[in-house]
Amino acid sequence: MSRSEQISKLLKSLTSSSADVEAAALVDNDGLMIASALPADVEDDRVAAMSAALLGMSDRIVRELGRGTFELVMIRGSDGYTILVRCGPDAVLSVLAARTAKLGLIFLDANRSAKEISRLIM
């Protein structure tokens, strides 16, 4: 199985682990999608662009405010959550979750997936 197929498999496993995880994607610092488990009606460009923008902003905030290195950011909207988890120095795992999601489980699954993906892409 190629590396991209392994990563895609991990992302599909993440989205199917819970009905509350609606989409997942691995995006690099430049806004390029590396792998994805996105529904057909979700725009790849939008997810990649927003993930890269949020990563850049979060990285800067953490550094400027002396909080070490960026690890995770979560945004809560009225219709759900957007969670970004660092995956090595060059990529970030984006997870879109429903409003009803149990965040503890989502964070656990997302972090586990991010660790495995980091091993694959390093």
Partner: peptide
């Protein structure tokens, strides 16, 4: 392939 297409658009 969706990934390659997105990368090319980017």
């Amino acid at each position: 392939d969706r990934i390659a297409r997105q990368n090319l658009r980017r």
